[in-house]
Structure formats: C-alpha cells, structure tokens
C-alpha cells in the first residue's frame, strides 16, 4: 500500500501539467465565472468538449451534405442498459415511456423464442430468466430506438405537420405544433413513439439531434461501454459506419417489408428479431 501513494501523486502531477498545457482554456471556462453572454455560447457550443463526429463544427452546417446512419451491433451488446439510463436522464423521460430500450431474446433448444424487456432495460439485466423450462441455446440483446426512416409513416400521417423529416435526414417532432392525437404512435411500425404524460405531445428518440449538431455523438452511443452502438455520417468515407456498411458483414434493418427504409441498421441480428 505504501508504494501506491508516490505513484499516484506522480500521476496526479503529470495530469495537472497536461491539463494546464492542453486544455487550459477549457478548464478555466468551468472554474472562472463568466459573463452571461459568454456562458450562453459556451453552453450552446461546448468547444472545450472534443469533437466526436468530424466535419460538423467549424464551417456553417450544411444540412444537405450529411447522411447520418446508426448501427447497432447485436454481437457486442451486453445488455447493461447504460444507453437507456443515459437517454432517460438526457431527456427526463417520464417513467413508463421509452425513447430507447434494450430487449433480451432467449432461444431454447426447441427454437422457441422468449423476449422480455423489464422496465425497458433501465435496470439492466441482473438475473437470468427463470420461467424457461427447456435448456437455453442462445441469448442476445437487441437495443431499439428510432429507425429514422427515409419514408416515415409518422410523418405521413401527422395531420398538422408537427413531425417531419429534416433535410439532414432526422425525423423530428415540433412540440409547439403537436396536438397530441397519437396518430403517429399508431402508424409507427417500430413503436418508438409515446405521448409524453407531462407535455401531452408525441415524443420519440431524435438520435440526439442537439448533440449531433454540436459535433457530439448521441448520448447512448457515447455511454455504451461495449461499442455496440455506432453513429456517423455515411458521406464521410473515413467514418466507422461507412466502413461497416460498405464492408462484407451482414447488415439488416427491422421490418423491411414495411417499406419505410430505416437508417437504423443492425449488425448480427438473428432472423427472429422483430
């Protein structure tokens, strides 16, 4: 135990040096109280947070130049539910409603499929399922979120134009216009929508549009410890998502027959996944 302390202190010293050298402006921003207008910009565009998606910051954001996709790698998801927790906190999602959730699929040796998703996966999966009599052959987790369809049913049916597909491909909700008729909830084949019991307007996953426009990853992608969620711009040939989608791996979308052309792709999804 005695050996630990000097090492620790040394580490601390070098770290402080690095911080002072590298991110002195950033760290000062947090410590020194700022004028109100400075604060606003520092919170709107958090320059001190390193960019996570290249090509967003700097020049004027051009909506037509991006084509964002989301990839969920089922072979990597460990069902910890970090994404669900972060999502609920980022948007203060009321209990019982889910912008994203993680399902557990269990296949027994007779090929029977059992799916469950207690509390949307918010508490993680602490215990194996106990109500299955037959030996289990396979277990896997399937995270779900908005499919950001190219031809979205929700946008088609919204009577007032309160949900729409933006030029950069995000299906978003205008909560100022939404009348809360829930038609979009009926129309969404993926059940990603709900009526927020506080605002009484429709709500769903937005792929963290506010973060993406600041050059940051969606919060679920950022917190995923297993790198099972991937997000990026297909127009950026260096991006991981471009490499995955142009590579040889098997990539599927959910409910292809619905004809909605999702921009959410699944890697390694078994055929039982709906």
């Amino acid at each position: 135990m005695d050996r630990e302390k000097p090492e620790l202190n040394e580490e601390r010293r070098t770290f402080i040096k690095k911080v002072l050298k590298g991110t002195i402006a950033g760290s000062l921003l947090l410590v020194i109280p700022l004028r109100a207008d400075d604060l606003e910009t520092s919170e709107q565009i958090p320059e001190h947070i390193p960019e996570q998606i290249p090509g967003i910051r700097g020049s004027e954001y051009d909506m037509s130049r991006h084509r964002f996709v989301f990839i969920v790698d089922i072979t990597r998801c460990i069902g910890c539910g970090s994404c669900c927790v972060a999502d609920k906190r980022e948007y203060n999602v009321p209990d019982g409603n889910y912008r994203t959730w993680v399902e557990r699929y269990i296949k027994d040796i007779d090929e029977n499929i059992y799916v469950d998703c207690p509390n949307g996966g918010l508490d993680g999966y602490q215990k194996p399922r106990e109500d299955i009599d037959r030996p289990v052959r396979d277990t896997f987790f399937v995270p779900k979120l908005c499919n950001m369809c190219e031809d979205p049913s929700c946008v088609q049916v919204c009577p007032v134009g309160a949900t729409f597909r933006s030029p950069d491909g995000f299906v978003l909700i205008d909560s100022e216009r939404c009348i809360g008729c829930a038609y979009c909830i009926q129309a969404c084949p993926y059940s990603v929508r709900f009526l927020n019991p506080v605002t009484h307007t429709a709500e769903k996953c937005s792929w963290c549009y506010h973060r993406v426009r600041r050059g940051l990853l969606p919060v679920c992608v950022h917190v995923c410890p297993a790198k099972a969620r991937k997000f990026g711009d297909l127009n950026d040939k260096e991006s991981e998502v471009y490499k995955i989608l142009s590579g040889p791996g098997v990539i599927t979308v959910l409910k292809r027959d619905m004809g909605n052309s999702p921009s959410l792709y699944y890697k390694g999804a078994r055929r039982e996944v709906i």
Binding site: C158, P159, V160, R177, C178, C181, H200, T201, A202
Partner: peptide, 16 residues
C-alpha cells in the same frame, strides 16, 4: 381525446 385540445385548430391551419 387530444393531448392538447387547445391546439385543435392546427388541423385547419396546417393540414398535412
């Protein structure tokens, strides 16, 4: 039924 009944006229103002 509407979540925001006070906005019902939106359906006449901006019918999709």
């Amino acid at each position: 039924h509407l979540g925001r009944p006070e906005r019902n006229f939106n359906i006449m103002l901006t019918p999709n």
